[in-house]
Nucleic acid binder design. Structure first.
Lengths: 161, 161
DNA sequence: GCATCCATGTAATCTGTTACATGATTCC
DNA sequence: GGAATCATGTAACAGATTACATGGATGC
């Protein structure tokens, strides 16, 4: 948790939290700027020779305090999901049957891929005695993928009849 | 599907598609403007006496064509989800146990509420021989809520121990 | 009769996405 | 040796949220 550059932080996020809270690189930079405005992090210029110079950031005492305060609160940001294939499926009666079948097939493939990927992550996190919490977050993704596949099994026959 | 005002459309969306593709009122207006720019819809001023004047929109032939073309394609927008409680849970080891329990309890309550609401919708749509497609979209929401509740049953003991 | 909601939107601001830039390194 | 990737970001633009405005109707 020591000083990270915006780029480092972006990479970390991309491989972890981004599954349930996507953030683009430039959003990470923008957010770091905002946090610095509010005095929760400080940045330091770090010149480099072979690579572009960078700024690394670390929590200030106020930042650490704000983090604790946030964690002490049981509240959380409301969830919101954008599910593209459901939008189209909503108008499914207007789709040519082949396009519909193909779409459902793609949804299935994506869900299976997601499932495989998350199953791997969950297994790794189960073995390593790391964080039960990280494992739990991945596990919900896994369960969701399973639910999606089961749903496809359930509705595909009716929809493509 | 005849001429609707932006407000009408917003209301319709809010009660249907918004569950999996949220849109704010002003987004609807903005999008209608864009569609008009592209010639896919036309708007007509409709003066009213007791209520503010409005514009109603309808599809142009080009708009209808574009809609058909979209439906004929099996592709769909990628999904993205923002799940607030998972972000916090990711840092769960830093939470005071009571806050953690309370958070999980709230997640459960929300999921149960969601479940009840969607169960009602699915039932109505099953009875009325309306659209199997609309029913299918609601059903996925229902299955997701079930998956979330099952996940809570699975992980809550480990996490709050 | 006062407060709230309904039906209509517009405006200001904040968030988020996509494209661009660049020198070193690694892949084929 | 040319093309892609990495490690850094910045800049321009598009998308989304929140707040504001307003007169009639409706609830208490």
């Amino acid at each position: 948790m020591n000083a990270m550059s915006g780029y480092d932080l972006w990479q970390f996020i991309s491989q972890s939290v981004a599954h349930f809270w996507p953030l683009s690189k430039s959003q990470v930079y923008a957010e770091l700027d905002r946090l610095q405005q509010r005095g929760l992090v400080v940045g330091t210029e770090v010149p480099q020779e072979k690579l572009p110079d960078k700024r690394t950031f670390e929590l200030t005492p106020q930042g650490a305090e704000a983090l604790q305060a946030w964690l002490a609160e049981p509240g959380f940001e409301p969830s919101r999901a954008r599910v593209g294939f459901l939008v189209k499926l909503f108008f499914g009666h207007g789709m040519p049957p082949d396009a519909l079948r193909e779409m459902l097939q793609r949804v299935r493939e994506e869900a299976e891929q997601q499932h495989a990927q998350l199953a791997g992550i969950v297994e790794i996190l189960s073995a390593s005695k790391a964080s039960v919490f990280m494992r739990a977050t991945a596990l919900l993704g896994l369960r969701d993928a399973e639910a999606t596949i089961a749903w496809l099994d359930e509705v595909t026959p009716e929809l493509t009849r």
